[in-house]
């Protein structure tokens, strides 16, 4: 019970902050803005960005992401519980560093900030091939991916190796986690990623071998059956998913590719939604971070749609479900 109670202050503060999360109604208001400039003005009025943040989408969205993590760092002493959420960013930085070193090019802004190992440090590790400085779940795959890319120049192979390692790390962290939300999040994340791999592999006619290399095992899906279904066609994937807890994915696949992408994110929101009624444990904090990520992603979709003058229906189809 003591560990449940240690987040009482933090959860209450998060409850008060949830009031300013964007609801469906606010997203509708944002959608009603005609241009990207109007959207940015609307966001600014809602308190997005800071006084000194430039009035451009990327700067505002980056600042909002930073604000979320600043709040969480202020509330939680032991940040290890959030490691699982930062793995995708950490592995992204590894991927970027390996490509930067093997291609001997220098590209700006390729690293995600606010990770346990900064982009610059990651670059230095890969350059010096001192992979032992990486956490145990990264060092092996980092060396393997680096050597594979160096010898084969196959960027996609390098990507799937690192992506699979990221999924496995998330899944393992979920298995070890004491908090139910981390376990559920890890399971949903890995399963949804596997489904995405199956769908994309089917569309690009990838081999069974490729899918086996890319998919990470999880409890709620049989990846062997899923990859065989992907080989047989989209109908077979839908049929397989219909018999699992991810039946909603089968429905979304029937609808359209963007509806499916939308379902993938909505599934994570569905996983965290029970935390909205939980007054104790770290669950509501994790849910808040994921809800903010989802909110920022949705706003990014709308801003990109407005910038490219996409029809409203097209943007609406891609808008994610909100947490509140």
């Amino acid at each position: 019970m003591a560990s449940d109670m240690q987040y009482t202050y933090a959860v209450a503060r998060i409850r008060a902050m949830e009031v300013s999360l964007f609801s469906r109604a606010v997203i509708e208001q944002l959608m009603a803005c005609r241009t990207e400039e109007q959207c940015l003005q609307f966001l600014s009025e809602k308190g997005w960005g800071d006084n000194d943040t430039p009035m451009n989408a990327e700067a505002i969205l980056t600042r909002e992401r930073e604000k979320t993590w600043e709040t969480v760092r202020e509330l939680v002493k032991d940040m290890s519980v959030f490691d699982v959420l930062s793995y995708p960013d950490l592995f992204h930085n590894l991927k970027a560093a390996i490509k930067e070193v093997t291609t001997e090019e220098t590209n700006p802004n390729i690293f995600i900030q606010d990770t346990a190992i900064s982009g610059e440090e990651m670059l230095e590790i890969v350059k010096s091939k001192d992979f032992s400085r990486l956490p145990a779940f990264m060092s092996g795959v980092a060396q393997e991916a680096y050597e594979t890319l160096l010898h084969t120049r196959d960027g996609q192979l390098c990507d799937i190796m690192i992506d699979k390692a990221a999924l496995t790390a998330i899944y393992e962290a979920g298995k070890k986690a004491k908090d139910e939300i981390i376990r559920d999040y890890a399971e949903s994340t890995v399963a949804v990623a596997d489904i995405k791999i199956a769908v994309r592999s089917q569309k690009t006619a990838k081999s069974l071998e490729f899918m086996k290399k890319a998919m990470a095992p999880c409890d709620s899906l049989n990846i062997e059956a899923l990859s065989r279904a992907a080989l047989s066609g989209m109908d077979a994937i839908q049929e397989y998913l219909a018999g699992t807890v991810y039946a909603g994915g089968a429905e979304a696949l029937k609808e359209s590719p963007s509806a499916f992408e939308c379902w993938c994110d909505n599934r994570i929101i569905e996983t965290i939604r029970p935390q909205i009624h939980n007054p104790f444990t770290v669950g509501p904090l994790v849910a808040y971070v994921l809800a903010r990520e989802n909110e920022i992603k949705t706003v990014r979709i709308i801003l990109t749609g407005k910038l490219n003058e996409l029809p409203e229906e097209s943007i609406r189809e891609r808008v994610r479900e909100m947490y509140v």
Binding site: T8, Y9, A10, V11, A12, R13, I14, R15, A16, M17
Partner: peptide, 10 residues
């Protein structure tokens, strides 16, 4: 503790 959390924000 919970009350302090809420008052911090509002």
């Amino acid at each position: 503790q919970a009350a302090a959390g809420v008052v911090t924000e509002d």
